[in-house]
Every structure is written in structure tokens, then in C-alpha cells.
Design a protein around this nucleic acid. Sequence first.
DNA 1: ATTATATATGAACAATAGCTCATATGTTTA
DNA 2: TAAACATATGAGCTATTGTTCATATATAAT
Lengths: 120, 120
Amino acid sequence: MEKQEDLERCESVHIHQDLVAQVNAGMPDEEILYDLAELFKLFADSTRIKILYVLFASELCVCDIAQLLNMSQSAISHQLRALKQAKLVRYRREGKQVFYSLADGHVRTILGQGMEHVAE
Amino acid sequence: MEKQEDLERCESVHIHQDLVAQVNAGMPDEEILYDLAELFKLFADSTRIKILYVLFASELCVCDIAQLLNMSQSAISHQLRALKQAKLVRYRREGKQVFYSLADGHVRTILGQGMEHVAE
DNA sequence: ATTATATATGAACAATAGCTCATATGTTTA
DNA sequence: TAAACATATGAGCTATTGTTCATATATAAT
């Protein structure tokens, strides 16, 4: 944890020197925080938000999602790929079609809390 | 809600035609979903995640945050601006320094749920 | 008033991300 | 096997974003 090298600092080395150490101790690992940001990136696009929202209501095939969002099959497929990789959605093949559904309860909570914040 | 114009559709107009209508009914407004994505964009960068995390522990001035994250004052200030605009952080001037703190309980919940998902 | 310190901000640049287009893969039906 | 349909994916283009650098603003101290 050698972070104290050649940093620019407030000249007035105010109170917070030990606070700084304490805060640092409570921080999750760099890698975890990076993964966390990666996760939230998936919620950071309105197309993906919409996809998650429609899957809220029901399992749907790619084609139906594309119709619902009035977007191309390709665009939706690309985004589903990202959501799939992050395990936010599951998929199930049925003949030619592939049905997607929400994989996780966290999705609901995260979107819900976001909604609450936005709706104020 | 004229969305049914010249869409590409699954040829096999399968079951979901009414489902599609139903799902559409339950969708929040376009604008809200856009705002929601904008909100999550703020969680979609590890610098901002770190800022929120350190503010978790304590109110801090810009300079201390910069030191904690080992980043430039300018970079932190830019990001605080974004967080401030979204009302995720509050600020309070005290002499030359400006102290930032979390503005909202939602931040904790959202980060917490994200953590749970990542940590599995 | 002048200087120093703390923070904010605009411009520029590199990196990233989302869409389209073309095409590949997988599945069913004729 | 060939054709049709549903989905997946790579390349390319444009738009967006995070950082740095230079500089502006705000407050305090001399």
C-alpha cells in the first residue's frame, strides 16, 4: 500500500491524515471496484435498460425484443451478448428461436433503486 | 404509440403478439429510461465508484480524495462535478476547501447490490 | 493589493462503446 | 440437399467519455 510517494497534497496538512489511512483500509480491492464499474456499465445504456425492462415482464425471443424496442436484430443481439456475459440474463434455445430472461434478482433491485433516485 | 410500421419481424408470428402489447404497456416512458441510464453511467466508471466509496466512510475535501485515489485534482474535480449534477453527492465550502459527502441513501443500496452480484 | 492555496473548468486527445452492414452459424422445412 | 428463417458476430464508422494541460475563479494570508 505505498501510495504516499509524489502526490500533490493540500499544503495545510489538515486533520485528515489518519482519516485517509482509515478510509483506505475500508476500500475493496482495485480489481473488485473495476468489476463493479464493468457491471454498472451494463445499466448505463438505455437500450440495455429497455431490454432488461421488457424481460422484467416476460421471457422473450430476440426477435420480439427487437420489435418491442423498434431496433435491429443485430443491435439487440450485440447487447444481449453483453448482458449474457455478465450473467444478467439467461437464454434457452427452442428451435430456431432463442429466449432470454432475467438471470438474477439483483437486476430488479438495482433498477428499482435507480428508479427511486430518478423519480424524485 | 405507433410502433408497428416497417419492422423486421419473426416470420412465424408466434404467440407473443399480445404479450408484446402487454409488455409495452408496462414500460416506463422513454425519457425516464434515458434518465435511468444517465444515472447508471455515473456508477459505470471505477474512478467515480472509488470516489463514492471513500465518501461512504467520511465527508472529504477534493484534495484528500485526490490523494486517496492517487489521481490529479483536476480529474477528481471533473468527476465530482458529474456526481454533483446528478445529486449523488453534496458539497459544503469551508474556507478554501470544499467538502463532499454522499447525498443519498440510494447510492449505498445500488453499490451494495452491485457488490453482491459481482461477488458471486 | 499581491501572493499562495484550493477548486473549477474549457480544450484537446486517446480510448471506448453502440450502431449498421455484411456475413456466418444453427435450426427447421420442403 | 437446398432454401428459409432466427440468431450471432466481426469490421468499420461515429459519438461519447475520461484524462491531462493550461488557466480561471474563490478564499485566505501577508
